[in-house]
């Protein structure tokens, strides 16, 4: 810290803090949307219809095989034109903000990963769970909400934690489309103070701290979701949380 006065540092810290909030907002919004769409898509693709399966395969293959950065650029640069094609004259006049482009891109990409996880988890549930619910005449909405999905979440949690931490590490990409997030603020501060090392290490540590915190929460959530299985899987939860 050679040429940084305390007042300067405080100013930059405020900027970084604001950037961090934007990053967090972007991340949580995108993850929530990706989660909702992922679960819905996962359930929808259980249908045996060839058309549904075909669409799912193409969608998953494309978005799992293409860098998120390109999807962000595509929605950011081409978003207005796409809206124009769908909504006509009115849509073409809507400008897509970097934040909006990021949310759309991450939702589309990560919904595919989450849908894949949810599909796998549903397929791994014993058939008896569905048959039992049907035999008790439980309506489908309640069957999914109270019987199937809680068990699916238990099975899919380790994978969801993976997706969570991967997505967190991709959120800085939106700064390349012009979002004033944590990384953009760090870059500005680094350039202005000529102290890039400190600012980038600090930014990296923020990300590491956040993911450490979320791993903690995830292992708590795992204990809670496993509460019905505790007798069989007493030793397992600790080993899985470490992964």
């Amino acid at each position: 810290m050679t040429n940084l006065s305390l007042a300067d540092l405080a100013g930059y810290m405020r900027q970084l803090g604001e950037g961090a909030l934007i990053t967090l907002e972007l991340f949580l919004t995108s993850f929530a949307l990706a989660f909702i769409f992922g679960v819905l898509i996962g359930i929808a693709t259980l249908s045996r219809s060839r058309v549904v399966q075909g669409i799912w395969r193409v969608y998953a293959s494309i978005f799992m095989g293409v860098p998120s950065l390109l999807v962000i650029f595509l929605t950011f640069y081409g978003g207005s034109a796409m809206l124009g094609a769908v909504l006509g004259e009115f849509g073409a006049r809507i400008d897509i903000s970097p934040f909006g482009a990021g949310v759309i891109a991450f939702t589309v990409v990560y919904a595919a990963y989450i849908a894949e996880l949810v599909r796998g988890a549903i397929e791994n549930l014993p058939k008896g769970q569905f048959e039992g619910a049907r035999a008790l005449a439980i309506p489908p909405a309640i069957m999914w909400g109270k019987v199937i999905l809680p068990q699916v979440m238990r099975l899919a949690l380790p994978g969801l934690v993976n997706v969570w931490s991967f997505m967190l590490k991709e959120t800085p990409l939106v700064s390349l489309a012009g979002l004033q997030d944590l990384v953009a603020a760090a870059k500005i501060a680094a350039g202005a103070t000529k102290e890039p090392f400190i600012f980038f290490v600090a930014t990296a540590l923020v990300f590491i701290a956040f993911s450490a915190l979320s791993f903690r929460l995830a292992s708590r959530l795992e204990t809670r979701l496993d509460r019905g299985q505790r007798r069989e899987a007493a030793g397992r939860s600790s080993s899985r949380a470490a992964a």
Binding site: K169, L176, K187, F200, T203, A204, F207
Partner: peptide
């Protein structure tokens, strides 16, 4: 844990 973009900047 650090995003690749930050490592690259670093």
């Amino acid at each position: 844990g650090a995003p690749l973009l930050i490592l690259l900047y670093l």
